[in-house]
């Protein structure tokens, strides 16, 4: 946040009237609700961390702090060679799908938003309507398709359903509506072709939307479970969530190891989020100041 942003937000805070006694009560209730909400959100993470520090015999003990904390689980997971492979698989897949979504969703969204052509409305509705079909229903056709094409157990097989999303296309189309046509026409007069206009004029103006989309897509693919589980066979092709769930066997699920792996695997998502959230917050602040 720049200095002006901070000033702007502190000014908004100052405009809030000094609380009176009656309002105070309401405030307490509000804080309480928010606090409880916060607890609900944070508990799974706290348990994840605490379980990752427990010995196996203590896992089903609900106490927050392990009696005999250990980093043995971390040593085990990090020394187990498979973990790194899964991490690399997940990273590569999440990064490629994110880049692909940013590119194709915004390209299609832009076209649907800024060009008038026959069938435009039908195409848009067709894309939107795919949002109504749940993943669980698509998994079987995807699988059959992958099988026919020989994509099973490959990066491409894991990635192909998510290289473009209807949600992303819709999001980008809506955001491109906020880009005034004058910008595009000015660029047209300045001699840019349509692809250049999209890339150098329209895309920089929807950066906040791109950042939001990047976070959604990255997290979605990082945590995707059902499809990677179905399409992969060999342990080397597993993504992180699939790999983690394979710790243990039918008889014995090793929760402490799963939680350890999960704890480690949140680190990249945190980094990714911290990098991109800057753009989102800045976009929101800018929009607020103009209006």
């Amino acid at each position: 946040m720049t200095a002006t942003d901070i000033r702007a937000s502190s000014e908004t805070l100052l405009t809030v009237e000094a609380p009176k006694k009656a309002a105070n009560m309401g405030q307490v209730v509000r804080w309480l609700i928010l606090f409880l909400g916060g607890i609900v959100m944070i508990m799974p993470i706290v348990y994840m961390l605490s379980t990752s520090l427990k010995w196996p015999h203590e896992v089903y003990n609900v106490n927050l702090w392990p009696k005999e904390p250990t980093i043995e689980n971390y040593t085990f997971v990090l020394e187990d060679g498979r973990f790194y492979g899964w991490m690399i698989n997940s990273t590569v897949i999440a990064l490629i799908t994110t880049a692909s979504n940013l590119f194709f969703d915004s390209l299609v969204g832009y076209t649907l938003c800024k060009f008038r052509f026959p069938g435009r409305y039908i195409v848009f509705i067709a894309i939107l309507s795919t949002l109504m079909i749940p993943t669980e229903m698509l998994v079987i056709p995807w699988y059959l398709m992958s099988q026919q094409f020989g994509w099973l157990d490959s990066y491409w097989g894991i990635m192909f359903p998510g290289l473009m999303t209807a949600f992303g296309t819709f999001l980008m189309k809506q955001f491109f509506e906020t880009v005034p046509d004058d910008f595009i026409e000015a660029a047209r007069i300045d001699g840019l072709n349509e692809l250049q206009i999209w890339w150098t004029v329209a895309m920089p103006l929807v950066r906040p939307a791109l950042a939001a989309l990047a976070i959604f897509v990255f997290l979605g693919n990082w945590t995707a479970f059902i499809w990677p589980l179905i399409v992969t066979n060999s342990v080397e092709m597993y993504t992180l969530p699939v790999g983690l769930s394979s710790f243990g066997d039918e008889a014995d699920v090793q929760w402490e190891l799963i939680m350890t792996g999960a704890a480690i695997s949140t680190i990249p998502t945190l980094v990714f989020f911290l990098v991109f959230q800057r753009f989102i917050i800045r976009g929101v602040v800018m929009a607020g100041l103009k209006g």
């Binding site: 004058d182 026409e185 000015a186 047209r188 007069i189 103006l205």
Partner: peptide, 18 residues
């Protein structure tokens, strides 16, 4: 437009904010 040897100034300027 680019081949017509013209330039246009718009009502809301259309200068690129970025």
């Amino acid at each position: 437009p680019k081949d017509r040897d013209i330039a246009m100034v718009f009502q809301n300027y259309a200068i690129y904010p970025h």
